[in-house]
Write a protein that binds this DNA or RNA. Structure first.
Lengths: 344, 344
DNA sequence: ACGCTCACGTTATACGTAAAACGGAGGAGC
DNA sequence: GCTCCTCCGTTTTACGTATAACGTGAGCGT
C-alpha cells in the first residue's frame, strides 16, 4: 500500500494526493475540521491518507504542540505484584485518553537520590511516582512536570497530587485482629527496602501495639524474598526468650518465608503460630492455610493516580485520593497456643 | 536555577549565555565536538547549560534525527509473572543503551487481529512482541519497524529476529518424567488464552504421550486463574471413568487450582495425584509440596530480545536466539497410586 | 450595487534541534 | 608572497506538523 519509495508519506504527500493544502490535511487528521472543511473534502483527504498508508509523524506533532501524550511511571520493580497492578490500572486509564506510558527502569529500588531523568527518557507530559520519599520530590519538581505521588511520604509541595493508600490503617487492623485473638508477643518481619511505605508500616504497628500495654514487639529484617523471610523468621523464632506467637509480615512474599520457617521448626499455622501479610497476591490463597492479609487494590491505585495526573496535565487543580484498604481474614490467624505453664 | 521566565531554556539560550552559536551548543551537548570545538569553549558551553538548567528538547531531537530511542514492548499482561520478568530484562538492556520502553496497554490479551498502533503510541524505533501469532506479524510489519518476536509462532518473514523459548521441549520432558514414574492417565490443564504458546504446549504434550502407546490424555480448559483451574480440575477428576493420576498444567498459577481441587477431593499430592506447572514463579515454592515445573528464564528472554532488537535497529542482520528451558523436579510428582484392582 | 457575513480553504510561520555546507585566521611548505 | 591545510567555529537549512492569520466567492439584506 505505501509507495515503493522507502520514506514514510507525510501530510504533504496526502495533500498532493487529495488535491488540497497540507494545512487541510492536518485539520482533518486532527479531527478539528468542524465548519472549516466540507464533509466531501474531508472524506477525500481521509481516503488519500488511507491509500498512502499515512500515519502522522509523532515526533513532529510533539514538537509543534509541546505535548507528547506520554507519561513516566516510576516504580521500584514490575515483578512486584503490587506495582504490576498499578501499571495495569494506570495503563487502562492512559489508553482511554490516548496516552502512552514509559516505565522508568529503576535498577534495584528507587532511592531518594536517584534522578529519574538522568537517563533522559522520552519527552514527557507528566510523572506518576510510587513509594517515593519526600526528598525525591524536589528532584522531580525540578522539571516542573506535572507529578502525582502514589503511596508516598506526605509532603507540602503545592501542585503535586497524591494518591494515598492507608496501609498504616491496614496494619493497625491486623494488630487489632491479632490482639483480639489474644496474641501478645509479636514479630514484625520487615522488608529490607529503602521505601517510605515500609517505615510507615513499622511505625503503625509499633503505635498500635503500644496501646495494648502488655504487648511486646520484636523485629526481623529480610530482603524481599521468600528465602530471606524464612531465614529471618527462623532465626527470630529460635532466639532465646519467649517465642512470638504472631508474625506480621510487610508483604505476602515474606509471609511465604514465615510459612517455611514454621514448617522447618515443626510449628503449625495457625495453631502454633499466626501469620499475616500485606498485598493479597495470588500467593496469599496459594498458601495452605490461606493467608490473612491486608488487601491493596493496586489497579485502583493506578487508575486514580493516572486520572489525577491527567487532570493536572489538563491544568485542573491537583486532587488527593484515598484508596481503601481491607483486612482479609483467612486461615492463617487463630488464638495463640496456651502458655506452657498452663498445661496440665 | 532555571530563569524565572517560565518556558524551558533552549539550546539558543545556552548559546547566548556562553557566547557561541546554537550549532556549537548542539555539537557539545551531542558529544560530537572532537576536533570541531576547543576544549575551553566546550567547557564554557557545558557550564552555561548547567547554570541555565538546560535539557535538550527530546521532541525536537526526535524530529531532526528521525530516531526516538524508544521501543514498544507488547505483552498480554504485566501481572503475569513471566512478562514482568521479560520487561525487567528488556529494561535493563534498554537502559544500558539509553533507550526507553513504552508498554503497549493490551486490554485482555493481544489477539492476532489487534493493531498495536491503533491507539498511536509514542514515536518508535522498534517493537518487541511476545507470544504473537504469525498472523499478527503482517500487521506489525506494515510499519516496516524493526521487530523482534519472543516465544512466538515460527514465521518466514525476512528481517524479523526471534527469541525462541523451547517450552515444547520442557513439556516433553515433563511428560517423560511422569511416564518414567509410571503415569499413564494424564490430564492437561490448558489455559484458555488465545496465545500461540499454549497451542504449542498442547501439541508437544500430545505428541510425547503418543509415543507411549498406552498413555491417555484428557484436556480441561480454564481461564488463567487459580479458581478457574480448581473448578476445571475438580470437574475433570470427578468425571466418570478412570481418574487421571497426573495433571500437567500450562502454568504454575493453574497448578494452584489443581492443588485446591485435590484438597477438596481428599487427594494428597503427590501420593494420589502428581501435578506440574510451567514458569517456576514464586508460587511454585510457596505451594506445599513445592511444585515440579518447567523453569522459564523470563529476564534472559527479555535481555536477549532487546539486544536483538537494538542490533536490528542499528542495521545489523537479525539473529535468532534460543533460551534454554529447565525441568525442575520438586515434591509434587511421584509414582502413581497402585491401581485399585491391585489392592489386597 | 454595495457592504456583510458565512462557509471553505490556503498561506505562512514557528516549534528546537542536528548536521551539512561554508568561512577566516594562522601557520607550513616552497 | 602565494597556496594549502588545519583548527575552530558559524550560517543555514530541513525535519513534519499545528495553527494563527489571511483570502475568496457566494448569498443576502437594503
Amino acid at each position: 500500500m505505501p509507495p515503493p519509495g522507502k520514506t514514510r508519506p507525510t501530510s504533504r504527500d496526502v495533500a498532493r494526493e487529495a488535491g488540497v493544502s497540507q494545512a487541510s490535511v492536518s485539520l482533518v487528521m486532527g479531527g478539528k475540521w468542524q465548519g472549516r472543511i466540507s464533509a466531501p473534502t474531508a472524506e477525500r483527504v481521509r481516503e488519500a491518507a488511507r491509500s498512502l498508508g499515512y500515519r502522522p509523524n509523532l515526533a513532529a506533532r510533539n514538537l509543534r504542540t509541546g505535548r507528547t501524550r506520554t507519561v513516566l511511571l516510576v516504580v521500584p520493580s514490575l515483578t512486584t505484584h503490587f506495582f504490576a497492578g498499578v501499571h495495569t490500572g494506570a495503563a487502562r486509564v492512559a489508553a482511554a485518553h490516548g496516552f502512552s506510558i514509559v516505565l522508568y527502569p529503576s535498577p534495584a529500588g528507587v532511592g531518594p537520590a536517584r534522578d529519574p531523568f538522568a537517563s533522559a527518557p522520552a519527552a514527557l507530559d507528566g510523572v506518576l511516582a510510587s513509594s517515593m520519599a519526600a526528598q525525591a520530590l524536589t528532584v522531580l519538581r525540578g522539571d516542573r512536570l506535572p507529578l502525582v505521588m502514589l503511596d508516598s511520604e506526605p509532603h507540602t509541595s503545592p501542585g503535586a497530587a497524591t494518591v494515598n493508600l492507608d496501609i498504616a490503617d491496614g496494619v493497625r487492623r491486623v494488630a487489632g485482629h491479632l490482639l483480639g485473638l489474644g496474641h501478645r508477643r509479636f514479630l514484625h518481619l520487615r522488608a529490607d527496602v529503602p521505601s517510605w511505605t515500609f517505615g510507615q508500616r513499622a511505625r503503625a504497628l509499633e503505635a498500635r501495639l503500644a496501646e495494648a500495654r502488655d504487648a511486646t514487639l520484636a523485629t526481623a529484617v529480610s530482603p524481599m524474598t521468600a528465602e530471606g523471610g524464612r531465614a529471618a523468621v527462623e532465626a527470630a523464632l529460635t532466639a532465646p526468650g519467649p517465642r512470638p506467637t504472631a508474625v506480621v509480615c510487610d508483604d505476602d512474599l515474606l509471609a511465604v518465608g514465615a510459612y517455611k520457617a514454621a514448617r522447618r521448626l515443626g510449628l503449625r499455622i495457625p495453631r502454633d503460630l499466626s501469620v499475616t501479610g500485606v498485598d493479597d497476591q495470588v500467593l496469599a490463597v496459594a498458601l495452605e492455610p490461606e493467608l490473612t492479609t491486608v488487601r491493596l487494590d493496586a489497579e485502583l491505585t493506578g487508575e486514580r493516580g493516572m486520572e489525577a495526573l491527567l487532570s493536572v496535565i489538563d491544568g485542573r487543580a491537583p486532587v488527593t485520593h484515598d484508596i481503601p484498604v481491607d483486612l482479609v481474614v483467612r486461615g492463617s490467624t487463630a488464638p495463640p497456643p496456651p502458655p506452657l505453664a498452663a498445661a496440665p
